[in-house]
Nucleic acid binder design. Structure first.
Length: 263
DNA sequence: AGTACCACCTGACGGC
DNA sequence: TGCCGTCAGGTGGTAC
């Protein structure tokens, strides 16, 4: 489920593989992933160009083409990138493929088709048009505080709201709240300034730790809940069975002992 | 501004 | 064996 740490990992993968390679050909296997761009225009935009820089904002990855356009990738739930030489290594749900003059390919693979690929002239403009909040791993304490200022909703939906903060989804909101020992349905307005500050530092810590682990739960520290986020999962602190509850239509995993329900 | 609910999509899985 | 309901969840729409 690509959230900020996963997308940052894709960014580093693209940087290490496809950057500065000349594009020979682009194939669109499923044009439904293209958002407001015709396949022919996408091919034309990529043709004979190179990715010369990348940028990530929240769950969006931008790859700069050397004529000032940006390729914009969103990974939905099941999206990923794969770089490979022989076509046999093509991923199963390939939607878009770029072939470079060095013979390698970069694929945008997306099983459930919730992701999207588009073009943008300017990243800031794109971010404004989507009304995205500040990137959850690139903001100061005062920006964080301001983002939550005056919010009346509950913690989990607020953390997942891309207009407030960009980058956190269902899995990492559970992780942050578990580390905070706060219930996902507690209202934002009930946090003290000290708790709000701790929410900031915990958010930074959880996301940075996940980025450093390349978003792979098997590499996460023992005290993280994410590897235990399933029906038979137990609390990494006390071995108690985890509880699955529904908060704003999403499954939330909590430790009932460490994250007691609010009054 | 917030919430509840629905739709999009595919594949896995459990029940019968 | 096979059919059906349910679930996973990011985003975006609706109605209230």
């Amino acid at each position: 489920m690509p959230e900020l740490p996963d997308v940052e990992t894709f960014k580093r993968y693209l940087d290490a593989t496809a950057l500065h390679q000349s594009i020979a050909e682009t194939e669109v296997f499923n044009e439904r992933v293209l958002e407001g761009v015709r396949p022919a225009d996408m091919k034309k935009a990529l043709s004979s160009r190179q990715f010369n820089a990348t940028h990530r904002h929240g769950k969006y990855l931008f790859a700069h083409l050397d004529d000032a356009q940006w390729l914009v990738l969103h990974f939905g739930m099941t999206g990923r990138l794969k770089y490979y030489k022989v076509e046999d290594s093509r991923p199963q749900h390939i939607r878009l493929q770029v072939r470079f003059t060095n013979g390698y390919h970069l694929a945008y693979d997306c099983q459930r088709m919730f992701g999207s690929v588009t073009l943008a002239a300017d990243t800031e403009q794109f971010i404004q048009r989507k009304k995205l909040g500040p990137d959850a791993l690139r903001l100061s304490w005062s920006e964080f505080r301001q983002a939550f200022q005056g919010r009346r909703g509950r913690l989990k939906p607020a953390l997942m709201n891309q207009h407030i903060l960009a980058g956190i989804g269902n899995v990492y909101s559970d992780e942050i709240l578990f580390q905070m020992e706060l219930h996902p349905e507690l209202s934002v307005a009930r946090l003290s300034k000290e708790q709000m500050h701790r929410l900031y530092t915990t958010t930074q810590d959880v996301l940075q730790t996940a980025v450093d682990a390349r978003a792979d739960p098997e590499r996460f520290p023992n005290h993280f809940i994410t590897p235990h986020r399933h029906d038979e999962g137990t609390c990494p602190r006390d071995g108690q069975p985890l509880q699955r509850i529904t908060v704003s239509g999403r499954s939330a995993y909590i430790c009932p002992r460490h994250q007691p329900a609010p009054d």
